[in-house]
Design a protein around this nucleic acid. Sequence first.
DNA 1: TCCTTGAATCGATAACTGTCGATATAAGGA
DNA 2: TCCTTATATCGACAGTTATCGATTCAAGGA
Lengths: 120, 120
Amino acid sequence: MSKSSVIEAPRTAAQAVGCCPPLSGAVLEVSQAVTAAAMFKALGDPVRLRIFSMIASSPGGELCVCDVLDVGVSQPTVSHHLKKLREAGLLTSRKEGTWVHYAVSPGVLGALASLLQLPA
Amino acid sequence: MSKSSVIEAPRTAAQAVGCCPPLSGAVLEVSQAVTAAAMFKALGDPVRLRIFSMIASSPGGELCVCDVLDVGVSQPTVSHHLKKLREAGLLTSRKEGTWVHYAVSPGVLGALASLLQLPA
DNA sequence: TCCTTGAATCGATAACTGTCGATATAAGGA
DNA sequence: TCCTTATATCGACAGTTATCGATTCAAGGA
């Protein structure tokens, strides 16, 4: 193990969602709907969506937790939301010394966007 | 009022979301996050996501409620989910005689997809 | 070794959500 | 007018969630 260990998301949700046809292409299978809904649900809280937006739009592509602490809720609540986003497969985390950096899971934005594609 | 009256969504959520930069472009304002999160939240339930998918992928672009009743939950629950999707601005409904037809709100898919756009 | 700091976990609580059966409403047909 | 059919609403209930303060854990630094 290297010095900065990576805490993986439980499953690669991006792959699971990337597999699916666009919503307007065919009816989602139940298992696909469960995975995709979990990701939408994670983005379905205003505080969490803003945290995700902060990380997604950060110049380096990742953000220290300490830079996410000014969203209007307490530190334990921020930690709780980051955990939810990671469990949904939307974020990955990387520990470096005392700090933890979060980044958007690769492929996840594209997978969700293609799920919402317009009909041809 | 014409014979087939249109039940509008409370607000045109597509416009409100379409106004926003991509998530990876800039941090969402609080008010933008509230509106966008409401739409993601509505898609954040597996049953609801499947209902939305059925309507979005239907050939005519709209679907009678009676064609959505086989998703594994009771009729009142389907009605409840359709109401949630309409209140989030994702669906519009049109009454025609005894039947009610639901369709995807115009612009909503594109607005959400552009919100999830990848960084340039 | 002790202290400080960043982050996660714990326990509690109020609010919300998905689901159902029962009922109401509304439109059409006999 | 009465019955049937399509949706919506009501009331209830079990499960989930967002939030907090208090605490714990982990990594450095003095």
